[in-house]
Design a protein around this nucleic acid. Structure first.
Lengths: 126, 126
DNA sequence: TATATATATAGGAATATTTGCAGATGCGAT
DNA sequence: ATCGCATCTGCAAATATTCCTATATATATA
């Protein structure tokens, strides 16, 4: 009957992996950071990050399907908020790891430099 | 000059996302859990999880590229260990979230059920 | 009722990831 | 030097994800 334990452990790993997969997207990370200050509607998020409302709704759906965010409907608006402050604890732990080891900072600066060199931004552009 | 801040924030989100992406794999989650008790060689990991050594090495390379694990070479063996105990803090935070909300438990049971019923595969089911 | 707004979902093309396997590399022993 | 072992890397097919467009649904307003 040991195979049951193995199967459960494997399934647990699968679901932890799915959970991290939900976090493994730049836009979704940014959205969660924005939700630190409180709930936001799809429209507000789409405006804040200059993306299509459909795209915002899609990314929020990914977070919602994993239970990371919850919704509250008011009129025709849907307010999204983080379901559990432990989520922020997790994000803080991630930040601590970044601070400890400066993972990828050199590469990050390099990428910014390349990005600007490829598509030079004009003055006053947001 | 505001675009610099935006670019930095976006790059930070990119790198956090890459970090979570490295965690977003069942095998890599299992490997990190196994590394809680101390360092392991590629061979030990491949035996413990019944996978090809090449596969173990590949998954460890993903973790190594993100600085999540570090290596120590001794003879022809390479010992892997977690680089920062904050990693375990993060995994614990993830576990707390799971315990708080039982994220995906319904889906987990569902998947186990489907796995058992996989032999007679049904139409229209994912 | 019709119309506009807010959100959700379906489909598809472009892109990225996973997986297993073959070959390459490095190291110790003979 | 060759052999055996441990590890790493490259390749390619299968699979999954992203992002966009179009459409659907629900709600408020005129």
């Amino acid at each position: 009957m040991v195979w049951i334990l193995k199967a459960v452990r494997q399934q647990l790993s699968n679901f932890k992996a799915d959970f991290f997969k939900a976090l493994a997207h730049p836009l979704r990370i940014s959205i969660l950071d924005a939700l630190r200050l409180g709930e936001l509607t799809v429209n507000e998020i789409s405006q804040r990050f200059s993306i299509e409302p459909a795209n915002a709704s899609q990314q929020l759906a990914v977070l919602r399907n994993k239970g990371i965010v919850v919704t509250r409907k008011e009129g025709s608006n849907v307010y999204y908020s983080v379901s559990d402050s432990a989520i922020f604890k997790l994000l803080d732990a991630a930040r601590e790891i970044f601070n400890n080891h400066l993972i990828g900072v050199r590469g990050m600066l390099e990428e910014i430099r390349l990005e600007q060199a490829q598509t030079p931004k004009r003055r006053g552009e947001r």
